[in-house]
Design a protein around this nucleic acid. Structure first.
Lengths: 207, 207
DNA sequence: TAATTACGCTACTCGTTAGTAGCGTAACCC
DNA sequence: GGGTTACGCTACTAACGAGTAGCGTAATTA
């Protein structure tokens, strides 16, 4: 199970298991993963920053991997995947996703992706969870925006074949920038990716 | 210094310091970094796989970081940056770089990039070396190919402004694929990136 | 041969981190 | 109140990994 150790007991007696603490712990775990690589995030760190005892963490999750898996699971889908922004043009829709506050906005989102990537290298279970619960849904958001632009005639139907690969350009360039430069990408970088790569790649033969 | 501890002594006496061992050790270090994240590569691993004693490693490099820095330094420039392939079209030139045997060919090159990225998160010195000696020169190779295509009239001169960002698409998509999928990218993926993203992005208004 | 230095080996120190044990106290049910 | 369970705390174990010490041996120069 990705989730907690101890399912809430129906015939409760004694001090109740305080589930409301979980959210704070998982948030702090993600914060730390946004700051440092997986191997440099210790459970002592998590305990210190949450103000909880390390034993309290282990009462909820059996291992560090389980804690991180639960944290990943707590992320949830990007809001845009449920309610795709419709601002009238593909360009503004893409920018809306770029500017989305999902996972704390562009900067923290990127830093977190980086931390999750390092976690993925440490465990096959985590790698699977990151792909299924973060990378995939985020890519899906872009794919849907592109497909919808075709549906409403903003793009030629011939571009449908390119959608899967072009949709990955923004996430790919974001993380690449993190490696290639020594600072998080600014907004004008994303604007350039959209205006100089994504949109042109979908408009050949139109002008 | 990025390089070895002990400079070869001019007034040599006694058993000579065998510099020829360095290359093997650095190669094995890169091999291991292509397999696992930085924190999971131990000097005991390096010693075991090289067949050398751990003390022999420490006689050459003072710390693990120094060893990895030397390994990075040993990589050298991609051959294409010195002698850019000229196969008549931008498309074939790009594919030549994709297929280049630099760093052991596409698969190992990608795996190594991934390991170097993890190493970069562990130390600011390593991060700088990776950027300066690997990421930057590799990006530069693509930038030159694109610029040359403009120079020879294959692309419109108006595309010059896009060169820096479009040149990063191939490296970015490569590493992204490594995260998004659970296997290294196949050649047809790179072909698709070139045909569906890079070239179209540089040909708007031409058709 | 003697002197000198590199190498490989075994065994260590020391710091760090995952995970655990035990206890006093807090919060809940009856 | 009494019973029961969660929490926080301190302290621990066990493993692992960077880096070191010491010794016997190999390779070289004089």
């Amino acid at each position: 199970m990705t989730d907690s150790n101890r399912p809430p007991d129906a015939t409760q007696v004694g001090r109740p298991f305080d589930r409301s603490r979980d959210a704070l712990i998982l948030d702090v775990t993600l914060d730390l993963l946004a700051e440092r690589a997986y191997d440099r995030v210790t459970l002592d760190d998590v305990a210190a920053r949450t103000g909880k005892a390390k034993t309290t963490l282990y009462r909820r999750w059996a291992t560090k991997d389980d804690l991180v898996l639960a944290a990943i699971h707590s992320i949830g889908l990007p809001p845009e995947i449920e309610q795709l922004p419709d601002l009238g043009s593909l360009r503004s829709d893409l920018l809306a996703v770029v500017d989305s506050p999902w996972l704390g906005g562009p900067d923290r989102r990127l830093a977190l992706f980086s931390g999750l990537t390092s976690a993925a290298r440490a465990s096959e279970r985590i790698a699977g969870a990151v792909r299924a619960e973060v990378t995939e849904p985020y890519g899906e958001t872009y794919r849907r925006l592109l497909t919808r632009a075709i549906d409403r005639g903003e793009l030629s139907a011939e571009m449908a074949a390119r959608v899967p690969i072009v949709a990955d350009v923004i996430p790919a360039m974001s993380t690449h920038y993190l490696t290639a430069a020594d600072r998080p990408a600014q907004r004008d970088f994303f604007v350039a990716v959209i205006d100089d790569v994504v949109l042109p790649a979908l408009q050949v033969g139109r002008g």
